[in-house]
Write a protein that binds this DNA or RNA. Structure first.
Length: 151
DNA sequence: GCCAACGTTGGC
DNA sequence: GCCAACGTTGGC
């Protein structure tokens, strides 16, 4: 059982978009970074929990908690020429990109990036490091518990 | 809109 | 296999 942080641009999928879905579940597709892909494909297990983080927006920060509800499978968008995530080098026989599905556990108050930075206990979080761009990062159990305590 | 940081690409 | 050029991310 692991913990994660997964970034989403609210203009793409916001926490409210997720909450509004009938099954409150979303396919985490469109990831086109090998490290993030490997986390999903190789490490994520059913029941792993993740903070849902809004990025590239006015109020970046954690806004909810999700749970992995489906293990990684080939990302359908890579085969769709009309998708902005289309990858001409991927084939169904040899897919490059994978996605899990996550289900909303609950929305949380906004724990802003600024607030996260204010806690010395979280100083080593990947997302707080300079130049961090990875859209999916592991979270320490201790960090997870610490943040939960602040919600 | 800017720009630092980083990942990927492709020529050699 | 190196590495310069390029594209993207994401906070500000």
């Amino acid at each position: 059982m692991r913990y994660w942080l997964m970034k989403s641009e609210p203009s793409e999928v916001s926490i409210d978009d997720l909450a509004a879905k009938p099954d409150q579940t979303v396919a985490w597709d469109g990831v086109r970074n090998y490290q993030a892909r490997n986390f999903m494909r190789n490490q994520m297990q059913l029941g792993d929990q993740a903070f849902f983080y809004h990025s590239s927006c006015e109020q970046p920060g954690i806004v909810g908690i999700t749970i992995v509800s489906k293990l990684a499978y080939p990302d359908a968008t890579q085969f769709n020429p009309k998708s902005k995530y289309y990858d001409p080098k991927a084939t169904p026989d040899n897919p490059r990109w994978f996605n899990v599905e996550v289900k909303l556990v609950r929305k949380t108050r906004l724990i802003s990036l600024k607030e996260l930075r204010s806690y010395p206990a979280l100083a080593n979080m990947r997302i707080l490091q300079k130049g961090n761009r990875l859209s999916i990062t592991p979270i320490d159990p201790a960090e997870w518990a610490f943040i939960l305590g602040k919600i």
